[in-house]
Design a protein around this nucleic acid. Sequence first.
DNA 1: GCTCAGGCAGGCT
DNA 2: AGCCTGCCTGAG
Length: 270
Amino acid sequence: MEYHYKTSCLDLRQTLESGQCFRWRRQEDGSYIGISGCHILKIAQTDDGAILTVRDKTEADYWLGYFDSATDYEAVIKQFSPDRTLSEAAAENRGIRILRQEPFETLISFIISQNNNIPRITGIISRLCESFGDRISDEYGGMYSFPDAKRLAALTPDDLAPLRAGFRVRYILDAAYKVADGTVDLGSIRAMSYDDGKAYLKTITGVGDKVADCVLLFAYHKTEAFPSDVWIKRIVAEYYSDGLPECMGDYKGIAQQYLFEYFRKRTPVK
DNA sequence: GCTCAGGCAGGCT
DNA sequence: AGCCTGCCTGAG
């Protein structure tokens, strides 16, 4: 079925190519095909929203949650209006959504992201899923699930060598072990405060401030999280050296995403 | 050869 | 608590 999602604040390219997710493929016609958990979606941009191609209404509901349809982005952008830089960044990138992704997949993805670039991150994750995930559908040329913690915990560094993930392999395995044996219960983080969730995630080797913030923001939708990468550090140093503006409130993570896109676009590729 | 890419651990002060 | 340094890998 096709589900027509009407909204004024969703731009697929801005959202799906913003570096918060790694499992979407842009098609020649401009639509995107992606997977999350065992859910598969084809989605196409329209003037007044997007059209979701899904099996049934239950699937459509899953994806509306994934695309954060419950958050009023218009209101958030209005809240940012006192800060000139931020409101310019938001106006230009008003179609960005903060996705609600599967926690384990998000955790492993951002462990892989450290000291790495987006094409390589995407490649490593593709190989991980094709090697150790399940082929859950033959449509769109074959779709593979993200392997769960138990599956990954059964592997050795040699098994993961073909991924070419380098020194991150031992971090991937440490995360898989801790989640598989219950040392880390990802489900419990949802109810935790931002600070507690961050400290809890950092008990995993290879998870520092940046990775923890990405997981808290892009999986658990804790919008107080403000992932501070090399780009954001430059922006903060130049524009917010006296501290982040009051109007960001509890939406620092959304602000971060607008600022990141705004300045990345303006930085020429060498 | 070199540097850099959306960091982190481990060791040092 | 804050600074340094090395790190797999592949592209430019």
